[in-house]
Amino acid sequence: MVPHVLVHLQEAGVSQVRQGGRQAWRRAGDLTVLHNAKPYEVTFHGPTRSVLVRVPTHVLGLRPFLLDRITAVPLSSERPVVGATAAFFSRLARHQTAAGAAETALLLKPSLDLIRAVVTVVLDRGDLARAPLNSTLLERVHEYVRLHMADPDLTAERLAAEHDVSVRWLYLTLSRAGISPGEWIRTQRLEECRKQLASPAHEFMTIEAIAHQWGFAGAAHFSRVFKTAYGVSPRELRSRLAAGRADSHRPD
Protein backbone atom coordinates (compact mmCIF):
# COMPACT_ATOMS: atom_id res chain seq x y z
CA MET A 1 0.00 0.00 0.00
CA VAL A 2 1.34 3.42 -0.94
CA PRO A 3 1.40 5.70 2.15
CA HIS A 4 -1.03 8.59 1.80
CA VAL A 5 -1.84 11.68 3.81
CA LEU A 6 -5.61 12.03 4.16
CA VAL A 7 -6.99 15.54 4.55
CA HIS A 8 -10.58 15.41 5.71
CA LEU A 9 -12.96 18.40 5.52
CA GLN A 10 -16.14 18.07 7.58
CA GLU A 11 -18.81 19.99 5.65
CA ALA A 12 -21.84 18.94 7.72
CA GLY A 13 -22.57 16.72 10.71
CA VAL A 14 -20.20 15.43 13.38
CA SER A 15 -17.54 12.74 13.34
CA GLN A 16 -14.64 11.60 15.50
CA VAL A 17 -11.15 10.47 14.52
CA ARG A 18 -8.42 8.72 16.50
CA GLN A 19 -4.78 8.25 15.61
CA GLY A 20 -1.44 8.31 17.42
CA GLY A 21 -3.02 8.45 20.87
CA ARG A 22 -5.09 11.53 20.00
CA GLN A 23 -8.76 11.96 19.19
CA ALA A 24 -10.62 14.85 17.63
CA TRP A 25 -14.27 15.75 17.21
CA ARG A 26 -14.90 17.21 13.76
CA ARG A 27 -17.67 19.67 13.10
CA ALA A 28 -18.68 21.69 10.05
CA GLY A 29 -15.70 23.59 8.67
CA ASP A 30 -13.04 21.58 10.52
CA LEU A 31 -10.08 19.93 8.85
CA THR A 32 -8.15 16.94 10.14
CA VAL A 33 -5.06 15.20 8.82
CA LEU A 34 -4.52 11.42 9.01
CA HIS A 35 -1.69 9.20 7.79
CA ASN A 36 -2.75 5.79 6.47
CA ALA A 37 0.67 4.28 7.16
CA LYS A 38 -0.44 3.97 10.80
CA PRO A 39 -3.70 2.68 12.35
CA TYR A 40 -6.55 5.16 12.63
CA GLU A 41 -10.25 5.07 13.40
CA VAL A 42 -13.16 7.23 12.18
CA THR A 43 -16.60 7.26 13.82
CA PHE A 44 -19.59 9.05 12.28
CA HIS A 45 -22.32 10.39 14.57
CA GLY A 46 -25.45 10.65 12.43
CA PRO A 47 -25.67 11.95 8.85
CA THR A 48 -22.52 13.69 7.67
CA ARG A 49 -21.10 15.26 4.52
CA SER A 50 -17.40 15.53 3.96
CA VAL A 51 -14.61 15.97 1.43
CA LEU A 52 -11.55 13.71 1.49
CA VAL A 53 -8.32 14.65 -0.26
CA ARG A 54 -5.69 11.88 -0.61
CA VAL A 55 -2.09 12.81 -1.32
CA PRO A 56 0.83 10.35 -1.58
CA THR A 57 3.13 11.09 1.34
CA HIS A 58 6.23 11.29 -0.84
CA VAL A 59 4.56 13.87 -3.10
CA LEU A 60 3.66 16.07 -0.15
CA GLY A 61 7.30 16.02 0.94
CA LEU A 62 6.77 16.67 4.68
CA ARG A 63 8.95 14.96 7.24
CA PRO A 64 7.35 12.12 9.25
CA PHE A 65 7.80 13.90 12.60
CA LEU A 66 5.68 16.82 11.33
CA LEU A 67 2.90 14.48 10.17
CA ASP A 68 2.99 12.62 13.50
CA ARG A 69 2.40 15.89 15.35
CA ILE A 70 -0.57 16.97 13.23
CA THR A 71 -2.59 13.75 12.83
CA ALA A 72 -6.01 13.71 14.57
CA VAL A 73 -5.62 17.35 15.62
CA PRO A 74 -8.81 19.41 15.07
CA LEU A 75 -8.00 22.31 12.75
CA SER A 76 -10.60 25.07 12.96
CA SER A 77 -11.52 27.08 9.86
CA GLU A 78 -11.23 30.21 12.03
CA ARG A 79 -7.51 30.05 11.26
CA PRO A 80 -7.10 31.95 7.97
CA VAL A 81 -4.94 29.30 6.26
CA VAL A 82 -7.27 26.49 7.38
CA GLY A 83 -10.36 28.42 6.30
CA ALA A 84 -8.86 29.19 2.89
CA THR A 85 -7.89 25.54 2.40
CA ALA A 86 -11.33 24.29 3.47
CA ALA A 87 -13.06 26.71 1.09
CA PHE A 88 -10.73 25.73 -1.77
CA PHE A 89 -11.32 21.98 -1.33
CA SER A 90 -15.07 22.42 -0.83
CA ARG A 91 -15.38 24.37 -4.06
CA LEU A 92 -13.09 21.93 -5.87
CA ALA A 93 -15.30 19.02 -4.81
CA ARG A 94 -18.47 20.78 -6.02
CA HIS A 95 -17.01 21.38 -9.48
CA GLN A 96 -15.02 18.15 -9.79
CA THR A 97 -17.20 16.59 -12.48
CA ALA A 98 -17.02 19.73 -14.63
CA ALA A 99 -13.22 19.97 -14.52
CA GLY A 100 -11.30 18.37 -17.35
CA ALA A 101 -7.99 16.57 -17.02
CA ALA A 102 -5.95 19.66 -17.92
CA GLU A 103 -7.78 21.85 -15.42
CA THR A 104 -7.47 19.22 -12.69
CA ALA A 105 -3.72 19.01 -13.28
CA LEU A 106 -3.42 22.78 -12.87
CA LEU A 107 -5.10 22.57 -9.46
CA LEU A 108 -2.73 19.91 -8.12
CA LYS A 109 0.11 22.22 -7.11
CA PRO A 110 -2.06 24.75 -5.24
CA SER A 111 -3.73 21.84 -3.43
CA LEU A 112 -0.38 20.43 -2.31
CA ASP A 113 0.92 23.84 -1.27
CA LEU A 114 -2.20 24.57 0.78
CA ILE A 115 -1.88 21.25 2.63
CA ARG A 116 1.80 21.95 3.34
CA ALA A 117 0.88 25.44 4.54
CA VAL A 118 -1.80 24.12 6.90
CA VAL A 119 0.56 21.60 8.48
CA THR A 120 3.52 23.93 8.87
CA VAL A 121 1.57 26.99 10.03
CA VAL A 122 -0.48 25.08 12.61
CA LEU A 123 2.74 23.54 13.95
CA ASP A 124 4.38 26.99 14.03
CA ARG A 125 6.95 26.07 11.43
CA GLY A 126 6.52 29.22 9.36
CA ASP A 127 10.01 28.78 7.97
CA LEU A 128 8.73 25.72 6.07
CA ALA A 129 5.40 27.33 5.17
CA ARG A 130 6.53 30.61 3.64
CA ALA A 131 7.13 29.28 0.13
CA PRO A 132 3.81 27.34 -0.05
CA LEU A 133 1.89 30.33 1.31
CA ASN A 134 3.46 32.67 -1.22
CA SER A 135 2.84 30.32 -4.13
CA THR A 136 -0.87 29.94 -3.27
CA LEU A 137 -1.50 33.61 -2.46
CA LEU A 138 -3.31 34.26 -5.73
CA GLU A 139 -5.70 31.30 -5.23
CA ARG A 140 -6.33 32.23 -1.60
CA VAL A 141 -7.02 35.88 -2.41
CA HIS A 142 -9.36 34.88 -5.24
CA GLU A 143 -11.32 32.61 -2.87
CA TYR A 144 -11.45 35.32 -0.19
CA VAL A 145 -12.78 37.86 -2.69
CA ARG A 146 -15.43 35.39 -3.85
CA LEU A 147 -16.62 34.86 -0.27
CA HIS A 148 -16.55 38.56 0.73
CA MET A 149 -17.43 40.24 -2.54
CA ALA A 150 -20.49 41.98 -1.07
CA ASP A 151 -18.47 43.73 1.64
CA PRO A 152 -18.12 47.42 0.72
CA ASP A 153 -14.77 47.67 2.55
CA LEU A 154 -13.10 44.95 0.47
CA THR A 155 -9.88 46.79 -0.33
CA ALA A 156 -6.30 45.89 -1.17
CA GLU A 157 -5.33 46.90 2.38
CA ARG A 158 -7.86 44.48 3.86
CA LEU A 159 -6.80 41.67 1.51
CA ALA A 160 -3.16 42.17 2.47
CA ALA A 161 -3.97 42.21 6.20
CA GLU A 162 -6.16 39.10 5.99
CA HIS A 163 -3.41 37.17 4.21
CA ASP A 164 -0.55 38.48 6.35
CA VAL A 165 1.36 40.14 3.50
CA SER A 166 2.25 43.72 2.73
CA VAL A 167 0.12 45.73 0.32
CA ARG A 168 3.18 46.04 -1.92
CA TRP A 169 3.62 42.24 -2.05
CA LEU A 170 -0.09 41.77 -2.77
CA TYR A 171 0.08 44.20 -5.70
CA LEU A 172 3.24 42.52 -6.99
CA THR A 173 1.72 39.03 -6.81
CA LEU A 174 -1.49 40.08 -8.56
CA SER A 175 0.33 42.15 -11.17
CA ARG A 176 2.29 39.06 -12.23
CA ALA A 177 -1.08 37.53 -13.12
CA GLY A 178 -2.13 40.72 -14.93
CA ILE A 179 -4.55 41.73 -12.15
CA SER A 180 -5.17 45.12 -10.55
CA PRO A 181 -6.94 44.54 -7.18
CA GLY A 182 -9.45 47.37 -7.47
CA GLU A 183 -10.38 46.60 -11.08
CA TRP A 184 -10.52 42.89 -10.36
CA ILE A 185 -12.90 43.24 -7.42
CA ARG A 186 -15.10 45.70 -9.34
CA THR A 187 -15.25 43.34 -12.34
CA GLN A 188 -16.31 40.42 -10.14
CA ARG A 189 -19.01 42.53 -8.49
CA LEU A 190 -20.31 43.85 -11.80
CA GLU A 191 -20.63 40.33 -13.17
CA GLU A 192 -22.69 39.22 -10.16
CA CYS A 193 -24.92 42.29 -10.61
CA ARG A 194 -25.30 41.54 -14.33
CA LYS A 195 -26.39 37.97 -13.55
CA GLN A 196 -29.05 39.17 -11.11
CA LEU A 197 -30.31 41.89 -13.45
CA ALA A 198 -30.68 39.25 -16.18
CA SER A 199 -32.45 36.75 -13.94
CA PRO A 200 -36.26 36.60 -13.80
CA ALA A 201 -35.88 35.44 -10.20
CA HIS A 202 -34.65 38.94 -9.26
CA GLU A 203 -36.89 41.05 -11.50
CA PHE A 204 -38.66 42.61 -8.51
CA MET A 205 -35.41 43.73 -6.83
CA THR A 206 -34.56 47.35 -7.49
CA ILE A 207 -31.34 48.16 -9.31
CA GLU A 208 -30.14 50.05 -6.24
CA ALA A 209 -30.77 47.01 -4.01
CA ILE A 210 -28.81 44.74 -6.34
CA ALA A 211 -25.94 47.24 -6.50
CA HIS A 212 -25.88 47.59 -2.71
CA GLN A 213 -25.97 43.82 -2.24
CA TRP A 214 -22.70 43.51 -4.14
CA GLY A 215 -20.83 46.33 -2.41
CA PHE A 216 -21.65 49.39 -4.55
CA ALA A 217 -22.39 52.40 -2.37
CA GLY A 218 -24.68 54.34 -4.73
CA ALA A 219 -26.94 53.66 -7.71
CA ALA A 220 -25.55 56.53 -9.81
CA HIS A 221 -21.94 55.35 -9.49
CA PHE A 222 -23.01 51.77 -10.13
CA SER A 223 -24.87 52.75 -13.32
CA ARG A 224 -21.83 54.61 -14.66
CA VAL A 225 -19.33 51.80 -14.10
CA PHE A 226 -21.85 49.20 -15.34
CA LYS A 227 -22.41 51.09 -18.62
CA THR A 228 -18.65 51.49 -19.07
CA ALA A 229 -18.20 47.74 -18.64
CA TYR A 230 -21.15 46.43 -20.68
CA GLY A 231 -22.10 49.27 -23.03
CA VAL A 232 -25.63 49.57 -21.64
CA SER A 233 -27.02 50.90 -18.38
CA PRO A 234 -28.48 48.47 -15.82
CA ARG A 235 -31.97 49.76 -16.60
CA GLU A 236 -31.49 49.30 -20.35
CA LEU A 237 -30.16 45.76 -19.90
CA ARG A 238 -33.08 44.79 -17.69
CA SER A 239 -35.63 46.32 -20.09
CA ARG A 240 -34.16 44.57 -23.13
CA LEU A 241 -34.10 41.19 -21.44
CA ALA A 242 -37.62 41.61 -20.08
CA ALA A 243 -38.86 42.51 -23.57
CA GLY A 244 -37.10 39.49 -25.01
CA ARG A 245 -38.74 37.18 -22.48
CA ALA A 246 -42.13 38.70 -23.23
CA ASP A 247 -41.67 38.17 -26.97
CA SER A 248 -40.67 34.56 -26.46
CA HIS A 249 -43.91 33.89 -24.58
CA ARG A 250 -46.17 35.77 -27.02
CA PRO A 251 -48.36 33.41 -29.09
CA ASP A 252 -47.67 33.35 -32.84
Rank of each mutant, 00 (worst) to 15 (best):
M1E: 06
H4T: 11
L6W: 07
V7F: 00
E11N: 07
V14H: 14
Q16H: 15
R18F: 06
Q19C: 05
G20A: 12
G20E: 08
G21K: 06
Q23D: 12
A24Y: 05
W25H: 01
R27C: 12
R27S: 07
A28S: 11
A28E: 04
A28G: 10
G29F: 08
N36D: 14
K38A: 06
V42C: 09
H45E: 12
H45D: 11
P47I: 09
T48W: 03
L52N: 07
V53R: 09
V53T: 10
P56A: 14
T57M: 05
T57L: 07
G61M: 05
L62F: 04
L62C: 14
L66A: 13
L75T: 11
S77Y: 04
E78D: 14
R79T: 09
P80S: 11
V81Q: 02
V81C: 03
V82I: 15
T85Q: 02
T85N: 00
F89N: 01
R91Q: 15
L92E: 02
L92W: 01
T97S: 13
A98C: 11
A101T: 11
E103N: 00
A105P: 00
A105W: 04
P110Y: 02
L112S: 11
L114A: 08
L114R: 10
I115F: 08
I115Q: 06
A117C: 09
A117R: 07
T120C: 14
D124W: 03
D124I: 00
G126V: 05
D127K: 01
A131N: 01
A131M: 01
L138D: 07
L138V: 15
E139P: 00
R140D: 10
V141Y: 06
Y144N: 05
Y144W: 11
L147D: 06
D151P: 00
P152C: 11
L154D: 05
T155Q: 00
A156K: 02
A161W: 01
V165N: 10
L170Y: 00
L170W: 00
L170G: 04
L172E: 10
G178T: 07
I179D: 01
I179R: 07
W184A: 06
T187H: 09
E191V: 06
E192K: 13
P200C: 01
P200K: 08
I210K: 04
I210H: 01
I210V: 13
W214S: 03
G218R: 11
G218K: 13
A219H: 06
A220N: 12
V225M: 13
E236G: 03
R238D: 08
A246I: 04
S248C: 10
P251M: 06
